[in-house]
């Protein structure tokens, strides 16, 4: 319907499909990782030492494993003839592999440790007396988390989110295994660059390389700008007339 109404738009979307696909995969996996990573970081930090150590290793593994190994595990789980994948296919008619959204899984798994670790580091660097004082004042733990701990670890959370987004955007190994390379369906920027280069279309590949560079630059720029908008109280800004805390 969309194509018939806006043929020009449809053309643009199909021309720029890898960009569009990469961005939505990275964005959705970042949202997933944002919440799961923060949740894991907050609760695991308070577990007993032994359990914490074990979970820490398990959750950080995807960061150090080759992405192809992650892809292998994902295929073992979600392949159409594997228990989970087979069940999803039979019950919900949902095929997880070789679709654009299967790349979300790959991106999320690979990006999760970045979010988890940076968020944990951020939470651990928050002075515990802030939580204690909030509790003794009668504030609920939920309030303390969202209104005190999160703002205090904002920098780390932000850094983790950006890292996770960048990692998700650049994911290649696990993505190409679980989502494959189906032009117009599952191709992302990184798999497109690889396939164009392999088939000798260097100029086309360069175009996508430049696109990727542009996105990364924009992301980093955005971070810098966000960081500069620190807790600059309006009072001081008015008084001294300059920015910076």
């Amino acid at each position: 319907m969309l194509e018939s109404m806006f043929p020009a738009l449809a053309q643009v979307v199909s021309d720029w499909y890898p960009l569009f696909n990469s961005l939505r995969i990275a964005a959705i996996s970042t949202v997933i990782v944002f919440f799961t990573g923060i949740f894991a970081a907050y609760y695991i930090a308070r577990l007993p030492r032994l359990l914490k150590g074990v979970l820490d290793v398990v959750l950080t593994l995807p960061m150090v494993l080759p992405p192809t190994v992650v892809g292998y595990f994902l295929l073992m789980l979600f392949g159409n003839r594997r228990p989970l994948g087979g069940w999803l296919l039979a019950t919900f008619d949902l095929q997880v592999v070789m679709t654009w959204y299967s790349a979300i899984l790959a991106s999320a798994v690979v990006a999760f440790p970045l979010m988890y670790r940076t968020a944990r580091g951020a939470f651990e660097s928050v002075d515990p007396t802030l939580r204690y004082s909030g509790q003794t004042l009668g504030l609920s733990n939920t309030y303390i988390f969202w209104r005190v701990i999160m703002p205090a670890s904002r920098q780390g959370i932000l850094a983790g989110t950006v890292l996770a987004f960048a990692r998700g955007l650049g994911e290649f190994g696990a993505t190409s295994m679980i989502a494959g390379y189906i032009p117009g369906k599952t191709n992302t920027i990184s798999t497109t660059v690889y396939n164009l280069w392999q088939t000798g279309q260097d100029a086309e590949a360069l175009k996508w390389v430049l696109v990727n560079l542009a996105i990364s630059a924009v992301v980093l720029l955005a971070v810098n700008m966000l960081e500069r908008r620190d807790f600059i109280p309006t009072a001081r800004r008015r008084r001294t007339g300059k920015e910076g805390a």
Partner: peptide, 12 residues
């Protein structure tokens, strides 16, 4: 009411 050594005011 516990007054902490570093006062533990919410910085944000």
């Amino acid at each position: 009411g516990l007054l902490f050594q570093n006062y533990a005011l919410f910085p944000n």
